[in-house]
């Protein structure tokens, strides 16, 4: 699984002198503009607006710059239809790619799921753990083929907290917390059953009306009413 490193400037800068000689005026104008946008790149429509070049000139120049391997096309997460170009020496910014968790403009849900499961397993095993402990535990297990930074683990755990699979607690320095200094933020699995256990469903959410899309149209003597309600019929069908 390829993680895009955050550091840019990976590739060698082509020698600007040698290139400038072979460029036409229009190409040079465009190239300079694109390069000036650094890791943000620029959208074709914006190029036309900023350079006042003809449509066909822009298209032709772009083609030529691409062929000369001076610029590249990049995906913009915000709008995939918009053609974005960037000088080859830059790596697309977080705004364009969506950040470390995106691959080719899509959220890498597969990878996230694997990491989530791993974190959950390790937290369950450790009973209570700090981010560092979880990170360390995962690293030592060697199960995860990809190196993960502590920062990434912490983002994953934060999502697990939002999923209510994991709870944020503070160490009391007793029992399971014995080895963790008082007051340190730790994590533990929410449901007492362990990973995969479902949490308690609320009173409202466990009856048909609680999740009913028609509740606003439902009246005692209306066409939709609790007497004739199909959701109720299904619920009470023993």
């Amino acid at each position: 699984m390829g993680r895009t490193p955050d550091t840019s400037l990976k590739r060698k800068r082509p020698d600007p002198k040698s290139t400038s000689q072979t460029l036409s005026d229009a190409e040079r104008v465009l190239y300079n503009l694109i390069r000036s946008k650094e890791d943000m790149g620029i959208w074709t429509r914006d190029m036309k607006r900023e350079t006042n070049l003809q449509d066909n000139v822009v298209t032709k120049s772009l083609k030529s710059l691409l062929a000369k391997n001076l610029i590249k096309e990049v995906v913009n997460i915000q709008n995939k239809g918009k053609k974005h170009y960037m000088a080859v020496e830059f790596e697309p910014s977080k705004e364009l790619t969506g950040g470390a968790w995106y691959v080719d403009g899509n959220l890498d849900t597969e990878f996230i799921k694997i990491l989530k499961d791993q974190c959950l397993k390790h937290i369950y095993k450790l009973k209570v753990a700090t981010i560092e402990m979880i990170s360390e535990s995962i690293r030592r297990s060697g199960l995860c083929k990809v190196e993960c930074t502590t920062q990434q683990i912490s983002e994953i755990v934060r999502a697990l907290v939002l999923d209510n699979d994991v709870m944020e607690v503070r160490s009391t320095e007793t029992g399971d917390f014995a080895s963790i200094p008082l007051g340190t933020v730790c994590y533990r699995c929410s449901s007492k059953i362990g990973p995969g256990g479902t949490s308690k469903v609320g009173a409202m959410a466990s009856i048909p009306c609680g999740v009913c899309p028609r509740i606003n149209e439902c009246t005692p003597d209306g066409i939709i009413s609790p007497r004739t309600c199909v959701y109720f019929n299904k619920w009470l069908d023993f």
Partner: peptide
Amino acid sequence: ILDEMCHAALNLSQRLAYE
């Protein structure tokens, strides 16, 4: 939500009466 809960409670009791 409180209003919807009351609505749901009313529905439950009406369905019960109907049954």
